[in-house]
């Protein structure tokens, strides 16, 4: 029993490590810098200035924080989806499903590296905020900030796992991903205050991951304590857990579906 548990923990972490290296090794230093450092910078500048132009106020920190967390969502959604979809493209999906490996360890483990990567993305975004827009951390509790970023990245990775399992039944998962990603740009409060949205859109915002994470991170950076944001963070965490569990069950359902339809190795 204990041996099996140890073996599953090994699959969880080795799977995370090897699948990341196998499927994301194209991210060499130059491509990593371009996609994870400079592309987010241009996006951040875009939203800071368009936000200032549209609202007439100069509240750069609102957009810097919002977009830094969008980078986490990008890593969570696209990265995690590709970590499942990439198996289809490399033709390794039948070999994974033909193995006796525990599906939970194999599936959920894939999110680990992307959570770390997403957190790094948030730090890079906030770093640009300090350098270019004078983002002020003088009143920030660093541990509370770290926790908020970790939980937000986890919850968006949960959404990535949910999207990723769609790769088992369709080749065109990236179309769905793009829609989900742009929905987060609109609904999460990263660029438009949730309170400014029409009521029906606000209801959608409250159901999504990221919304509460963005709000918590803003509060913490502006001097709020962990206690102030804890209820919201708990819900954000819960959303992440629910998405992960739902993703796992769909993964199991779609595995059976793919075996019934014979779509496992179509690429």
């Amino acid at each position: 029993m204990l041996n099996h548990l140890t073996a599953n923990i090994r699959i969880f972490f080795e799977g995370a490590y090897y699948s990341y290296r196998a499927l994301f090794r194209w991210l060499r230093p130059a491509t990593y810098l371009a996609s994870k450092v400079f592309a987010p910078l241009t996006m951040m500048i875009f939203f800071v200035y368009i936000g200032a132009y549209a609202s007439g106020s100069n509240n750069a920190s609102f957009y810097v924080i919002g977009n830094s967390l969008i980078f986490a969502a990008s890593s969570g959604i696209f990265g995690v989806t590709m970590s499942v979809g990439g198996e289809r493209w490399s033709g390794t999906l039948p070999y994974l499903f033909g193995s006796p490996a525990n599906r939970w360890a194999m599936f959920v483990g894939r999110a680990v590296m992307h959570i770390l990567d997403g957190m790094l993305g948030v730090f890079i975004g906030l770093g640009w905020g300090i350098l270019l827009f004078g983002l002020d951390f003088s009143h920030t509790d660093p541990m509370a900030l770290l926790l908020a970023i970790l939980i937000t990245t986890f919850s968006t990775s949960g959404l990535g796992l949910l999207m990723g399992c769609l790769s088992l039944i369709t080749r065109n998962v990236m179309l769905v991903n793009n829609t989900v990603y742009f929905s987060l740009l609109v609904f999460s409060g990263a660029n438009i205050p949730v309170a400014e949205l029409p009521r029906w859109m606000q209801s959608i915002s409250q159901m999504l991951p990221l919304t509460r994470g963005v709000a918590c991170t803003r509060t913490i950076i502006n001097g709020g304590s962990l206690a102030d944001v804890l209820p919201l963070l708990q819900v954000e965490f819960l959303i992440g857990v629910m998405l992960t569990i739902l993703g796992y069950f769909l993964f199991k359902v779609f595995e059976i579906q793919a075996k019934k339809k014979g779509t496992l190795d179509i690429f």
Binding site: A7, I11, Y18, R25, S90, G91, T92, P100, A101
Partner: peptide, 23 residues
């Protein structure tokens, strides 16, 4: 055919990963 391996990993890493998947 040639598919079904992780091309960006070494042969050794491919074997190590599958060894863990097979316990």
């Amino acid at each position: 055919g040639e598919r079904g391996l992780y091309w960006r990993l070494s042969g050794l890493d491919n074997l190590r990963y599958f060894a863990s998947l097979y316990y």
